[in-house]
Measured scan of single mutants.
Amino acid sequence: DVPLPAGWEMAKTSSGQRYFLNHIDQTTTWQDPR
């Protein structure tokens, strides 16, 4: 597995969808940043 870039975290919604948190610029995205 390729690790997420620095500052990123993967999370899941209550319905189980994956999303990605960027802690550096305080954004979220559905797109995997890798």
Rank of each mutant, 00 (worst) to 15 (best):
K12T: 10
Q31P: 02
Q26W: 02
Y19Q: 05
V2A: 14
D25G: 13
A6E: 07
R18N: 15
P3V: 08
S15G: 13
F20M: 05
L21T: 06
Y19W: 01
S14R: 14
S15D: 09
Q17D: 09
P3Q: 13
T29K: 05
R34N: 05
W8M: 00
S14V: 11
T29M: 05
L4M: 12
T28R: 03
N22G: 01
V2S: 15
S15Y: 14
W30L: 01
Q17V: 09
T27V: 10
A11L: 01
H23F: 00
T28P: 02
Y19G: 04
S15T: 11
R34P: 02
P5K: 05
H23Q: 01
I24F: 09
I24A: 09
W30K: 00
Q26E: 06
G16D: 07
Y19S: 02
P33E: 00
K12E: 11
D25K: 15
R34Q: 05
G7D: 06
T13H: 04
R18G: 07
L21M: 09
P3T: 13
R34D: 05
L4R: 04
M10Q: 14
P5S: 06
E9H: 06
R18T: 14
D1Q: 15
K12A: 08
H23G: 00
E9L: 01
T28I: 00
Y19R: 00
D32H: 09
H23P: 02
K12L: 11
T27N: 09
I24L: 11
F20G: 05
P5T: 07
R34C: 04
P5H: 02
R34I: 03
T13A: 09
W30F: 04
G16S: 07
D1C: 14
N22E: 03
T13R: 03
M10P: 13
P5Q: 07
H23K: 03
A11P: 03
T28V: 01
G16V: 02
H23T: 04
D32L: 07
T27M: 10
D1L: 15
A6C: 08
P5W: 01
P5L: 06
N22D: 07
M10E: 15
S14Y: 10
T27R: 13
S15W: 12
F20C: 02
F20H: 06
Q26L: 05
R18C: 09
D32R: 10
W30E: 00
D25N: 15
T13M: 09
T29R: 07
G16E: 03
W30C: 01
Q31W: 12
E9T: 12
P33A: 02
E9G: 15
T29A: 07
W8S: 03
Q17L: 08
L4S: 01
K12V: 08
Q31D: 09
K12M: 10
T27D: 05
P33T: 02
M10T: 11
Q17E: 09
D25H: 14
S14M: 10
P33F: 10
M10S: 14
S15C: 07
V2Y: 12
S15L: 10
R18F: 11
G16P: 00
A6H: 11
I24H: 13
A6L: 14
G7A: 06
M10N: 02
E9Q: 12
I24Y: 11
M10A: 12
I24S: 10
W30Y: 02
D1E: 14
T27Y: 12
G16I: 02
R18P: 14
G7S: 07
D1F: 13
M10W: 09
F20Y: 12
W30Q: 07
W30V: 00
T27P: 02
G7N: 08
Q31V: 07
T13C: 02
K12D: 08
P5A: 07
D25L: 13
H23D: 02
T13N: 07
R34V: 00
T28S: 07
E9K: 07
P5M: 05
S14G: 12
Q26P: 03
Q26S: 04
N22H: 05
T13F: 01
Q31S: 10
G16N: 08
Q26A: 04
D1P: 15
D1K: 15
K12P: 02
T28A: 00
V2L: 15
A11Y: 00
D1H: 12
P5R: 06
P3G: 14
S14L: 10
S14P: 09
S14F: 10
N22C: 05
I24N: 14
H23S: 00
L4W: 06
A6S: 11
T27H: 07
P5G: 10
G16W: 03
Q26R: 15
T29P: 03
T27S: 11
T29E: 08
D32E: 06
Q26H: 09
V2T: 13
P33V: 02
W8Q: 06
H23N: 03
G16R: 08
D1A: 15
R34A: 00
P3I: 13
M10G: 13
I24V: 10
S14H: 13
Q26V: 01
M10I: 09
M10V: 11
V2H: 15
L4F: 09
W8G: 03
D32I: 10
T28D: 01
W30S: 01
K12Y: 09
K12S: 11
Y19C: 02
Q26Y: 07
A11G: 08
S15V: 12
N22I: 00
D32V: 09
A6Y: 12
W8F: 08
F20S: 02
R18V: 13
G7H: 08
F20V: 03
Q26M: 06
Q31E: 07
N22K: 05
T13I: 07
P33G: 05
S15I: 11
F20T: 04
R34T: 07
Q17T: 06
A11V: 04
D1T: 15
R34G: 04
S15R: 13
D1S: 14
N22S: 08
S14N: 12
A11C: 00
N22Q: 05
L21S: 04
V2F: 12
T28N: 05
